[in-house]
Design a protein around this nucleic acid. Structure first.
Length: 761
DNA sequence: CGCTCATAAT
């Protein structure tokens, strides 16, 4: 046993194949040392095993003069493939020529194959040209080799040459060509190959059908993919898995799940690939009940310990919001992959966004940050998905410091070169109120997509930098990037922001006439907002009448807020009646209406709105804000006195409000949707501190002198807090940034970046 | 021939 001969390549011991051992069963010199070795010293245990043989030594044993069995080269060539060793392949090639066996087509074909596997495309091609008796195997090896080396196009060219030379392709040839089509997304060529497959009578072969199904899916044609699947007479589990995955890749989760159910009804036994795909479809279709059943199937078929399956189960838990279950599964996994971490981070990021701006959102975001840190510690390297997800989390949390750290890591890792990651970075700086850093990150991007341009234009617009927004839009057009309807929301809101009526009208027409984009509610909302802010209430109402559809909640809310701002309460009440007829859905809308009726002391209307809220089952959202200071987060409720610094905060606010009044600040009366009617009446006379004002006070007291204060609020800022924050920015000489559920407010020198734009409640 | 995360803009 111990005397069995062996070959060393790269310091690893390999037992020889039986054929070679037959040649010289006993005389192989175990005592011979290494004459050929590239890698580091062999492990110590090697000294106790028989000394291995190099390729060159093996070749010298084969000998050059005597008659040699071609099959003797096979194990040697296999070793070359395993170690991608070009020099050893060349050795063997030379030996084959010396023994005259290069006339054996099967050996030459093997060499073409091995050269290709070693990445020596030119060697392979030169050899191929020198083989006069080349057969279909040789051709196929060349095509497969090109595909393997990322030269799918050459593979397709060779296939055409093959057909021209009159050789009949086999099942393997056609399979290789289909891979070439897949790799280069050539649907037209693929369809022609499909024709040949039919011509050569191979269409009924299951694996051909599977390949076609996969090809059409990769080329983005789900219809053709499903059709190809339908034409497979004997569908196996791979056929089903291919078509189900195709549905997922092409965004038709429902169809994929229907096919999965069909598969199970036909008693085809799914495997871990099928179940993972099905689970993923349940996640994207939010088909949670079915997801539970798929989970049972995983257990039933013993697939629940596979890592991909576990990843998808964990993601399903996260999607359902079952954090504890997800966490339990995560903790129980002895091995995890980068995908596990990414699923955990992306899952929490999504929960954060879904919960909008409340405390749950905050918790999910913090959890995602922790996971990202642990990913680092685990020794795995974050990829572009990790980076884009975590930047999204930083945006959601308004966590500028963490965002900047991630920025540094993204630079080091090289993933900042990815357009999605760099776009996420721009967005992060924007959401944190750092427009200059956002702009810098945008300038430094090496490629820009429609989305990068659009997000930067919108960022300028949000920060009240109209000129820059419009300039950037024109630059984008010059760069040949076609804007979409979202881009125009940014442009129009920028114009509206600055009250540039003629520009707004110009771009509104450009959108329709030059780009053929039909305006949607958001575009009308920008225009209506603009007219309203300029006090042109008539124009606003006329514009609304010119729309081809009925005004929605948003449009009416803008009109109401505008009418209130300009003291036209008659029109405001009229618009409110129209709005109430729509039975609005958004909590914000009710806050607006309640505030208006409370301010007007129209208590019967207040009751009416409250009743409608109950009837429509509108969730009461409690007013919450938070502020991030040195890795700690401080939460505030309206009129919160539970805080350890409450006394100082209230004293500061009293002082600031007092001085603000002398500068012209006039308090607004506010309703609070979380309180009930009685408290509302009682409170309307006294000073109310909404949560954001308390958070601002806390930030002013605890942030370093002169540093900006960043507050996040779960619902929209009210007029009173908005107005007072402007005065606070003058009185303290500091930037105050409040990100509410609707937009960003950056208060500086008595002005807000939002320009009092939009329906402030 | 088939698998898990899939990210950015109002």
């Amino acid at each position: 046993m111990a005397s069995l001969p062996s070959i060393a390549i790269n310091g690893t011991l390999h037992r020889l194949e039986p054929d070679l051992r037959k040649l010289s069963p006993t005389s192989l010199p175990a005592e011979k040392g290494f004459s050929y070795q590239r890698s580091t010293a062999a492990p110590e245990s090697f000294s106790e095993t028989p000394q291995p043989l190099t390729i060159q030594e093996a070749l010298s044993f084969i000998g050059e003069g005597s008659r040699v069995e071609p099959a003797l080269y096979v194990p040697l060539l296999q070793q070359c493939i395993e170690y991608r060793s070009l020099s050893e392949t060349e050795c063997i090639h030379g030996h084959i020529i010396k023994t005259g066996l290069h006339e054996e087509v099967f050996l030459s074909t093997s060499l073409v194959n091995v050269y290709m596997k070693c990445g020596a495309v030119d060697h392979a091609r030169n050899l191929f040209e020198k083989i006069p008796q080349r057969n279909i195997f040789t051709w196929t090896a060349l095509i497969t080799g090109y595909v393997h080396n990322g030269q799918a196009g050459n593979g397709m060219v060779v296939f055409v040459q093959l057909l021209e030379s009159g050789v009949y392709p086999t099942y393997y040839t056609l399979g290789a060509v289909l891979s070439a089509c897949s790799a280069s997304y050539s649907i037209e060529f693929g369809e022609q190959v499909h024709g040949y497959i039919i011509k050569f009578g191979l269409e009924s072969a299951t694996s051909m059908g599977n390949s076609l199904c996969s090809l059409y899916s990769k080329c983005g044609s789900l219809g053709l993919s499903v059709k190809a699947f339908g034409r497979i007479p004997d569908k196996n589990v791979i056929s089903w898995t291919t078509v189900i995955t195709a549905c997922g890749d092409n965004g038709d989760a429902d169809l994929g799940l229907r096919l999965f159910v069909d598969m199970i009804s036909e008693d085809t036994v799914p495997n871990e690939f099928t179940l993972t795909s099905a689970m993923s479809l349940c996640c994207s279709a939010h088909a949670f009940d079915l997801g539970k059943q798929v989970h049972s199937l995983c257990v039933k078929y013993g697939c629940d310990s596979s890592l991909p399956v576990r990843n998808s189960i964990m993601y399903l838990y996260l999607k359902r919001g079952e954090l504890d279950e997800a966490r339990r599964l995560f903790d129980s996994m002895e091995t995890v992959s980068l995908i596990t971490w990414n699923a955990m981070i992306a899952g929490h990021a999504e929960l954060m966004d879904m919960a909008k701006h409340d405390a749950t959102a905050h918790k999910s975001g913090i959890e995602a940050l922790k996971m990202f840190r642990r990913l680092h510690q685990s020794g795995l390297k974050p990829d572009l998905f990790s980076f884009s997800s975590i930047l999204r989390v930083c945006s959601g949390l308004v966590a500028l410091e963490q965002g900047e750290q991630v920025h540094g890591q993204a630079i080091k890792s090289g993933f900042l070169a990815d357009v999605v990651v760099s776009s996420a970075l721009v967005n992060m700086y924007n959401k944190c109120g750092s427009i200059d850093k956002a702009s810098k990150a945008f300038v430094e991007m090496n490629t820009r997509t429609l989305i990068s341009w659009t997000s930067m234009i919108s960022a300028y617009s949000q920060h009240g930098r109209t000129k820059e927004a419009i300039q950037l839009f024109e630059q984008m057009r010059l760069a040949g990037v076609r804007p979409n309807h979202v881009t125009f929301v940014g442009v129009l809101s920028a114009c509206a922001h600055a009250g540039m009526v003629s520009e707004a009208q110009h771009y509104f027409n450009v959108m329709r006439n030059e780009y053929g984009i039909q305006p949607v509610m958001d575009h009308y909302a920008c225009m209506v907002d603009m007219y309203v802010r300029l006090g042109c209430l008539e124009s606003a109402f006329d514009f609304v009448k010119s729309m081809s559809f009925e005004p929605n909640e948003i449009i009416w809310s803008i009109l109401i807020a505008g009418c209130r701002s300009h003291g036209n309460m008659e029109m405001a009440f009229y618009a409110a009646e129209r709005l109430l007829e729509l039975k609005p859905k958004a909590t914000e809308t009710y806050v607006l209406l309640l505030n208006m009726y409370v301010a007007a002391e129209r208590w019967q209307d207040v009751s009416r709105v409250r009743k409608l809220m109950k009837d429509e089952k509108i969730a009461v959202v409690r007013d919450r804000s938070w502020v991030n200071i040195k890795d700690r987060v401080y939460f505030f409720r309206a009129n919160d006195r539970s805080h350890f610094q409450s006394d100082r905060m209230y004293a500061l606010l009293e002082d600031l409000l007092d001085r603000a009044k002398r500068l012209g600040y006039v308090p607004y009366k506010n309703a609070d949707v979380s309180d009930d009617e009685k408290e509302e009446k009682a409170a309307s006379g006294s000073t109310l501190h909404h949560s954001e004002r308390l958070a601002i006070a806390f930030g002013l007291l605890n942030m370093p002198t002169g540093a900006p204060v960043r507050v996040v609020k779960n619902i929209t800022m009210c007029r009173d807090c908005h107005s007072s924050a402007k005065f606070f920015s003058i009185l303290t000489g500091r930037e105050i940034i409040v990100r509410d559920s609707k937009r960003l407010h950056k208060f500086k020198d008595g002005r807000c970046s939002c320009g009092d734009f939009g329906a402030l409640v």
